[in-house]
Computed example of a mutant assay.
Amino acid sequence: MIKVDLGQRLKKLREAKNMSQEDLSQQVNVSRRVIYRWETNKNYPDMDNLIKLSKIYAISSDELVKGELISQKKVVIDEEDVEFSISPFIIGVIILFVEVFLIQVLC
């Protein structure tokens, strides 16, 4: 079922970018006939070409294949969490410097 819809998606995405099959074929580095075969579901792009297509259309390869837009959730970082996660790092660095200093002084 995914493969049947893929050709239609590829064609709609290409047309939305106002590109001809020839234009797209030059960007993907395949023949125009290959683009035609993908859009008519006679052949399907390999993984390398799916990645190239996803970059051209500025969507993930998963979105390209599945036809679903993946929502990008905003992650809100609480300031306290940032301080808490940075504090152990800073403390570790300070301990390291103290250890190095003590080793040099004692030796």
Results as ranks from 00 to 15, higher is better:
Ser61Cys: 05
Ala58Pro: 01
Val82Trp: 06
Tyr57Pro: 03
Ser87Ala: 12
Asp81Gly: 01
Phe84His: 11
Lys55Thr: 13
Val4Lys: 08
Asp78Thr: 01
Val75Met: 04
Gly67Ser: 10
Arg32Leu: 03
Leu106Asn: 09
Ile103Cys: 05
Glu80Val: 14
Asp78His: 05
Leu102Tyr: 05
Glu15Ile: 07
Lys12His: 10
Gly7Met: 09
Asp81Glu: 13
Tyr36Cys: 09
Ile94Trp: 14
Arg33Lys: 02
Asp78Gln: 05
Thr40Ala: 05
Gly7Pro: 07
Ser87Tyr: 09
Lys55Ile: 13
Tyr44Ala: 07
Gln27Leu: 15
Lys42Glu: 15
Lys3Ala: 03
Lys74Leu: 03
Ser87Phe: 09
Ser85Pro: 00
Val105Gly: 00
Gln27Ala: 09
Thr40Pro: 03
Ala58His: 15
Glu22Tyr: 10
Glu99Ser: 15
Glu15Asp: 11
Lys17Glu: 15
Glu83Asn: 10
Gln72Cys: 00
Gly67Pro: 06
Pro45Phe: 04
Lys3Ile: 02
Tyr44Asp: 04
Pro45Arg: 06
Asp62Lys: 08
Gln104Ser: 14
Ser54Asn: 02
Tyr36Phe: 14
Ser54Phe: 01
Leu106Glu: 07
Leu106Val: 11
Cys107Phe: 06
Val93Met: 12
Asn43His: 10
Leu50Arg: 13
Val30Trp: 04
Ser25Gln: 01
Ser61Glu: 05
Ser54Ala: 13
Gln21Cys: 00
Glu79Tyr: 08
Ser71Asn: 10
Glu83Ala: 04
Met1Phe: 07
Val75Ile: 13
Leu64Gly: 10
Glu83Ser: 02
Asp23Glu: 03
Glu39Met: 07
Gly92Gln: 14
Ser54Leu: 01
Leu64Trp: 10
Ile77Arg: 01
Val75Thr: 08
Asp23Asn: 12
Gln72Tyr: 00
Ile56Asp: 13
Trp38Ser: 04
Ile59Trp: 02
Asn49Thr: 11
Leu24Val: 06
Lys55Val: 11
Phe97His: 02
Arg37Met: 09
Val4Tyr: 06
